[in-house]
Design a protein around this nucleic acid. Structure first.
Lengths: 111, 111
DNA sequence: CATTCAAATCGTAATATAACGATTTGAAGC
DNA sequence: GCTTCAAATCGTTATATTACGATTTGAATG
């Protein structure tokens, strides 16, 4: 999957094919309960979390968790950090804003 | 697919399996470029839009558009309204708020 | 430099999704 | 009641996703 170059709000005027695809890709990255739980665990933890500490709470095999993390990293929502043999993951600080930006209402209405 | 009973923000404390699944289902409903475009077209139009006016801008067959609309209705994002032979669709007024609620930051930070 | 061990990748199977044409359904109109 | 025509559903195919065990990669350590 290509990295998400940009994404447009749902209510943007004249959304073209590429913008719709980029927007959909970001939503799709969160369209799986394991990945929602990963984001939730990363948001809850104070600081980066080791993959090895995610398999038990998720109830999934190491390979499966690794794949989900890869998708979240490719979507630009999660950051990977190598520490020796271990990989630590954290939410991209802008992840929430990036997703929230997709749901901006027309006319600047907010929340 | 079951209707989405409730959904919890990504950063909610102690997200359980059902909450994660409901949250993921809402994201998944928007995780397709055709459905993003449909939501965009419905947001742009003033009032309900006929299915028959969606197939051309989407470049998809009637059956395909009907299926996508069904998914959006099941996700609680779009409303269906029958008018004689035609079906008209509009955004659920709460759709944006429902999606935006998923990305609420911890500690009430907003936008 | 061989061993260890976590993570990534590979290969595969089961399931889900997306698309289409064909068919069925159902309201409107003759 | 028959016809019409839009929408929904069905049946099918192609593709994508999800999951796993097995294998490979690569940093740390003896």
């Amino acid at each position: 999957m290509l990295p998400i170059a940009c994404c447009a709000p749902l209510a943007a005027p004249d959304l073209d094919e590429d913008e719709a695809a980029a927007t959909a890709a970001l939503f799709a990255a969160l369209g799986n309960s394991a990945r929602v739980k990963i984001v939730n665990l990363l948001a809850a933890g104070a600081g980066p979390v080791c993959l090895c500490n995610l398999t038990v709470p998720l109830g999934l095999a190491q390979a499966t968790v690794s794949q989900h993390l890869k998708r979240l990293v490719e979507a630009g929502l999660v950051l990977r950090e190598e520490r020796g043999k271990w990989s630590y993951f954290s939410l991209d600080p802008e992840a929430f804003e990036r997703v929230a930006a997709l749901t901006l209402l027309p006319k600047g209405v907010c929340c």
